[in-house]
């Protein structure tokens, strides 16, 4: 579905991604993991065309994102749903209006159905009661879930989630994982998810990509990850701190 080939990305002169290559297949749950600040959010923004690569290619259904013109790009972006790390809700609208926004804007939805559809999406993320609240009246985790509801508003083929479960309680986070699994099996939705949650990874991930210092250190299935001897990956799964920190603690 999406192929990333030798992607290099800069912010100004600061190189964030350095030759990243991998492939996401249709209907799978693809999780991206890695340390804080290693470029995961940047990679997602590249994959939905919000940032331009310095070099390398990103192919979506066989088309290079860089070669798309404006119209093609926005048509492409309508078939994907994005939930950003900081939710990206529109502050001037209620939660319900936020979810209804793509339905109204992109057309194709029967206007008398929008209300029910909004309620359905909100109840999927457990926010049915918050429909008429403003985003500024929500807690951090609620805002996150409202962002998810907006991302899946139009049954997209491909969904990008940036740390969906950060700030959620374990029960909610588990519920979210199950929802993702169900959407995948029901609608063959493809998910690309950035996460730090070991439990979600174990439960839902089909394949995992690990980034470190802007490079891919591991890409493969859960079983391969369990068998892999890549140090960074082992450290991640065993929740082991970096050696220098451990040593300093001992010397204290």
């Amino acid at each position: 579905m999406i192929t990333v080939d030798k992607l290099v990305s800069h912010y100004g002169t600061h190189k964030v991604l350095d030759g990243v290559s991998f492939e996401v297949k249709k209907g799978e749950i693809f999780m991206i993991i890695g340390g804080s600040g290693c470029g995961k959010s940047t990679l997602l923004k590249q994959m939905c065309g919000l940032l331009k690569p310095t070099s390398g290619h990103i192919m979506y259904r066989g088309r290079d994102l860089a070669a798309m013109d404006e119209e093609e790009m926005s048509a492409m972006q309508r078939t994907i749903g994005i939930a950003f790390q900081s939710s990206g809700l529109f502050n001037s609208m209620t939660v319900g209006e936020n979810v209804a926004m793509p339905m109204r804007e992109f057309g194709g939805v029967d206007p008398q159905l929008i209300d029910e559809l909004v309620r359905y999406k909100l109840s999927l993320v457990g926010l049915a009661h918050a429909q008429h609240l403003m985003p500024s009246e929500l807690s951090g985790g609620m805002r996150k879930r409202a962002g998810l509801a907006r991302a899946i508003a139009l049954d997209p083929d491909l969904v990008y989630f940036d740390e969906p479960s950060a700030g959620l309680d374990p029960i909610m986070a588990a519920g979210l994982d199950h929802m993702i699994l169900k959407l995948k099996s029901l609608l063959q939705t493809t998910f690309v998810i950035v996460t730090h949650e070991l439990d979600s990874i174990r439960l839902a991930a089909d394949r995992i990509l690990m980034l470190d210092l802007g490079e891919v250190v591991f890409c493969g299935t859960l079983e391969e990850a369990a068998a892999s001897q890549v140090d960074r990956l082992r450290q991640f799964f065993d929740r082991r701190a970096d050696d220098f920190i451990v040593q300093r603690n001992i010397s204290l």
């Binding site: 939805v109 029967d110 008398q112 159905l113 029910e116 559809l117 309620r119 359905y120 999406k121 899946i152 049954d155 029901l186 609608l187």
Partner: peptide, 15 residues
């Protein structure tokens, strides 16, 4: 098969 739109119609029927 059902998709979300179908789901919304079911909600409408229940309403």
């Amino acid at each position: 098969s059902i998709d979300s739109f179908g789901g919304a119609w079911i909600i409408k029927a229940s309403g």
